[in-house]
Design a protein around this nucleic acid. Structure first.
Lengths: 239, 239
DNA sequence: CGTCGGGTTGAGTCCATTCAACTTCGGTGG
DNA sequence: CCACCGAAGTTGAATGGACTCAACCCGACG
């Protein structure tokens, strides 16, 4: 159940057996959610952090006019609300985009880790820092990239992140989002989202149909996106 | 020199004298930068983290077409690149928007803190988590708020953050940004930025002229921005 | 007095939105 | 078996927002 998490963490640095088992012991009972349910709801003060084990989820905020904005997409192995361990109060919700299986890490256990396992603590801290780095990249994409470039960047990012947790096959990956949900990622209307997808499709670098994204020309996609994976901190080095 | 930092950290939780002095000892020599200089440059692997003591700075990325996007604004007391302690490689630059004075925290000292002072470690971790929360709020603003609402939100955020470090006077604060720089925050052209500012000014909730922002009607500004400061984690509680 | 950086304004173009219609596809019930 | 339905995707047309290009204002400063 925890392989995805460790695949992610071990891309950043080596984990000892002791660290692995200490973290594994902190993560207990699972739970399942249906599509559309909140894994974590806004305003809550969870006593545990949620590890996404299977399925896709997203962090979001809703405005008074009904507009919804996703602030991140979460894939298996992501600690979707590790930040709540210290932020205490959730300032946003997390919704299941597909049926999801999660496991829970008790905050008391996490606190114990910070007291007894400094290196493991740094790795968990790093995990939240990568989240922040992704946020920054999204801000850049929303502010200064063209819409097709933004979409291309998103595909690049998802491909790399899913590759880490072995959820790609060759140059394809499963993307169970509707165009309306993607619009809530990119801050567009559904109609325009559809046209941006059409444009990128026509460019020939990538195809997306039936929940399946196929990268036809990685070089060209990466160039269109100006994608530089540095921000994902994928190299393994002492932290 | 370090008051601003401690004002910020102490809004989140109590710091003991031992923690205060341990952190203070980790933060050494200062340095000064002129407007426009990079405090930290993209691609670098700093051996220390930079604490902004005086002045305004911003994190940014530049795209191939020359477009620049700020991903955060930094005010005195902000650890502008604490994340580099674990991310190692800077994936963005940090530029001085005014003359800046900074101090440096050696990464070896920070590592020692993670090994000897778990609670202080959690507070520093929290500091980076608040950064992430601000990023999320910016994503929401860029994606789904109207432009005037986005600007109003930014003013609310800056007011609250500057209030924490005692850089407000009544309902005014000093904002040493050009409209072009603000445009790089909001992802707009300079011309349109100017019009958005004009619109917000005309609404009467806030005024901005000569580097001085005056909030004329906080209630109305906050309503226009749908500003909820929860994401800044300003309540003091055990972390 | 002239220059330069920053701010402001107008006009025209392009982009993104809304509203609306229509398609496709799976699922469900008569 | 097929008729119907709803969710997702696609397309067209009209409106309004945001961009570029360009001009001009203004105050600081040499």
């Amino acid at each position: 159940m925890l392989e995805s998490l460790f695949l992610q963490l071990r891309r950043h640095d080596v984990l000892t057996d002791a660290e692995t088992s200490m973290l594994a012991e902190a993560i207990t009972t699972g739970r399942e959610f249906d599509t559309g349910q909140d894994l974590v709801s806004i305003g809550s003060r969870p006593a545990y952090s949620t590890l996404l084990v299977e399925g896709f989820a997203a962090r979001y905020k809703v405005l008074e006019n009904g507009g919804r904005q996703f602030t991140s997409l979460q894939v298996p192995g992501d600690f979707v609300d590790l930040h709540a361990f210290l932020l205490k109060t959730m300032d946003h919700g997390i919704v299941a985009l597909t049926p999801c299986r999660v496991m829970l890490a008790d905050h008391n256990r996490l606190r114990r880790i910070t007291e007894e396992a400094p290196h493991l603590t740094r790795i968990l801290w790093l995990d939240t820092l990568v989240d922040g780095a992704i946020h920054r990249e999204w801000i850049v994409a929303m502010g200064r990239r063209s819409k097709t470039s933004h979409l291309a960047h998103l595909f690049c990012e998802l491909f790399v992140r899913l590759e880490t947790v072995k959820l790609t096959e060759g140059n394809t990956f499963h993307l169970p989002l509707t165009q309306a949900e993607l619009a809530d990622v990119m801050g567009l209307s559904v109609v325009h989202m559809n046209r941006v997808i059409g444009a990128l499709r026509k460019s020939g670098a990538v195809n997306w149909s039936g929940q399946k994204v196929t990268i036809l020309d990685w070089e060209r996609l990466q160039a269109a996106a100006e994608f530089d994976p540095t921000y994902l901190s994928l190299n393994n080095e002492p932290r």
